[in-house]
Write a protein that binds this DNA or RNA. Structure first.
Lengths: 148, 148
DNA sequence: CATTTCTTTTAAGTTGGCTTTAAGTCTAGC
DNA sequence: GCTAGACTTAAAGCCAACTTAAAAGAAATG
C-alpha cells in the first residue's frame, strides 16, 4: 500500500470526547473495557484513545444491547469474534436466537400498547362524558373485541 | 339487588394459586402489596386471598409495567386512582406521557432490529460465500441505504 | 392425628449495570 | 511554570426489583 492512499491523520479521541460521541460516560467506557467489550489504544503516557472504528463498534454493540442482549452475552459474542472465522456459525446462531427472543418481546409490547391505548381512550371518554360514570374499565374492555 | 342475581360463590384464590395465575411469585406479590400496588383480602385466620377482579387488576398493571412504567410510577398511578375521579386528568396525562416515551423506545428498537438483521444477513452471506472474505461489516453497511 | 405443604412476618441478600470515591498523574491555557 | 480540568487505578457504593432466609402458624392429605 502506498503512502498516498493511506490516511496518515487518523483521528484520536480521548475518553471524554469518545464518551460524548457514543452517549456513554467515561466510567461506563472503562467498565465496558474491563468486561472486554472494547479495546482502546494507549498514548505514550498511558492515556486511552479511541478511533472512528471504535465509534462504529461501540454503536453496533449498543444496538445489540438494546435488542435485549446482556453484557454477558455481548462478552461471549466479542470473545467468539476474537477467535476468528471459525466461530462465525456460533455467532450467527447467537444473533438469530437474540432476534427470535426480541420478536417475542416486541409482540408482547405491542399487546401492552393496545391495552394502554384502550385505557387512554377510556379516560378520554370519561373526561368528555362519552362513557357513563358507572361503566368500569373491565366493562369497557368487554365491549371491545379483545381481552386483558 | 335480589339474591338470585348475585353470584354468592365468588372465587377466592390463595397467594400460591394467584401467583401462578398472574405469572408472578408469592414473594413478588407480597412485595407489590407492600408497595401498595394490590390490596388482597384476608380470611378469618389471617391468610391473604385474591379474587378474579384482582387478577384483572394485576394483569393490567403488568401491561403498564411492560410499557416501561417503574414501580414508583405505578404507585403514583394507583394512589391517584384511590383518590377518586378528581385525579382522572392527572392519570390521563401520566398515561399519555408513558405512551409517548414508549413510542420513542419502540422506534429505537425498530432501528436496532434493522441493524441486527443486517448483521445476520452479513453472516449468512459470509457462510454461503456471497460476501467476499475481505468485505467488512462497515463496508457492507456502506453499500446499503442506511447507517450505524 | 400426623406429616407434609402452604402461608405468615421481618429482615437481610442478590443481580445487573453501572456510578462514585480516593488518591494520584497528565494536559492545556494563561 | 502554574493551575484547572481531564485522566489514571482499584475498590467500594448504589439502585430497582425482586429473592431468600428463618421461625412459626394454618391447611390439606392419607
Amino acid at each position: 500500500m502506498s503512502t498516498e492512499t493511506m490516511n496518515e491523520t487518523e483521528r484520536h479521541y480521548r475518553i471524554g470526547d469518545f464518551a460524548e460521541m457514543t452517549g456513554l460516560t467515561s466510567p461506563t467506557l472503562r467498565y465496558y473495557e474491563k468486561e472486554g467489550l472494547v479495546k482502546p489504544h494507549r498514548s505514550e503516557n498511558g492515556l486511552r484513545f479511541y478511533t472512528d472504528a471504535d465509534v462504529k463498534w461501540i454503536k453496533f454493540l449498543l444496538h445489540l444491547k438494546s435488542t435485549g442482549m446482556s453484557i454477558e452475552q455481548l462478552k461471549k459474542y466479542v470473545q467468539w469474534r476474537a477467535e476468528g472465522d471459525s466461530t462465525i456459525n456460533k455467532r450467527l446462531e447467537l444473533l438469530k436466537n437474540v432476534r427470535s427472543e426480541f420478536m417475542k418481546k416486541m409482540e408482547d409490547l405491542d399487546h401492552s400498547l393496545t391495552i394502554l391505548d384502550d385505557k387512554i381512550d377510556w379516560y378520554t371518554g370519561k373526561t368528555t362524558g362519552k362513557i357513563k360514570d358507572s361503566e368500569g374499565f373491565a366493562t369497557y374492555l368487554d365491549n371491545m373485541n379483545h381481552e386483558e
